[in-house]
Simulated assay, not measured.
Amino acid sequence: MTTAVERTAAAPVPAGGPAPAAARRPPAEDARRPLWQRVAFVAALTGASVIFMLPFVWLVSASLRPREYVFAPGFLPVPFAPDNYAEAWSAAPLLTWLVNSVVVGVAAAAAVTISSAWVAFGFAYFRFPGRDLLFGLVLATMMLPFAVTMIPTYLIWSELRLTDTQVPLWAGNLFGSAFYIFLLRQFLLSLPREYFEAARVDGASYPQLFWKLAFPLIRPALLVAFVFEFKASWTDLMKPLIYLRNEELFTLPRGLKVVLDRFGYGGEQQWEVVLAGSVLATVPMIILFFLAQRHFVEGIATTGRKG
């Protein structure tokens, strides 16, 4: 016999639960809009997309030009010099830095997603005196600038003899993040409480409520938190600058700083190498977004509603 936890996890979410925004919108809503409004809306989206794409288009174009034409006007890579990427790949250990960034990014994103989900489940499910005050204190930690905790945090890792390792880049996420706790708690509040009460009557423990019931139902929100944190880790330069000294442990942002110092300002002025390395560091995040786009947009659309 299946338990209530298994039946509930497999059951579709009712109308009061989270659903994509497109599913809740009346099907004829777009059709009722005047034609000029729809044309203006599409034109505005297209214009905004072009504006946001221009810097990246220029970056790709400039990375494909010879050195003396890097800063030439226009967006076409003329003359065409694809060998810049081979030169950038051989000038620096980009593959090693890429692997390091993937490892650190996955570890940081997984750690903060799971730990924040546990805390968010506690705030969403349990009702105890002082819950709102405690949740407010958790949110208040977002007001602390990174510079306030930077030195104490470094001293802690130094005492643990973990400086010049990749551990400080992700291990702090094991204690959760106020932003992701808030995001996941709002998603959990949209789930019908009757699901959890039925599972408790059937004898499910609290860990079973989380792993077998809540976890499958909040996957879109978990994916949002994972992608956000992976992106934050992928582009983070401050922590690698503070903790890493061994070039073999560098992440891509820290490595690109070395490339910029060596081939950019104060270096050999080989900007085509710097730009080619920047493109190689950007492409993986674009691929990740397109692979997770459907679930990512669904999680953004449904997070924050309480059914």
Rank of each mutant, 00 (worst) to 15 (best):
A4D: 10
A10D: 11
V13T: 10
A15H: 04
A23V: 04
P26L: 08
R33Q: 14
A40E: 09
A40F: 13
A40Q: 05
A40K: 02
A43W: 06
A44F: 14
L45A: 15
G47V: 12
A48Y: 06
F56I: 14
W58P: 03
Y69Q: 15
F71Y: 13
A72R: 13
P79N: 13
E87L: 08
W89D: 00
S90R: 14
W97E: 12
L98G: 14
V99R: 10
V103M: 07
G105C: 06
G122M: 14
A124H: 07
A140G: 12
F146H: 12
W157N: 04
E159D: 11
R161M: 07
L169M: 11
A171F: 10
I181R: 00
D202S: 11
G203I: 12
G203T: 11
A204Y: 04
F210R: 00
K212T: 06
L213Q: 03
L213M: 08
I218C: 11
I218Q: 09
A221S: 09
F226P: 01
V227E: 03
L237P: 01
L241R: 03
K257L: 11
V259C: 02
L260F: 12
S278P: 00
F289A: 05
F290D: 04
L291Q: 14
R294S: 03
H295C: 08
T303R: 00
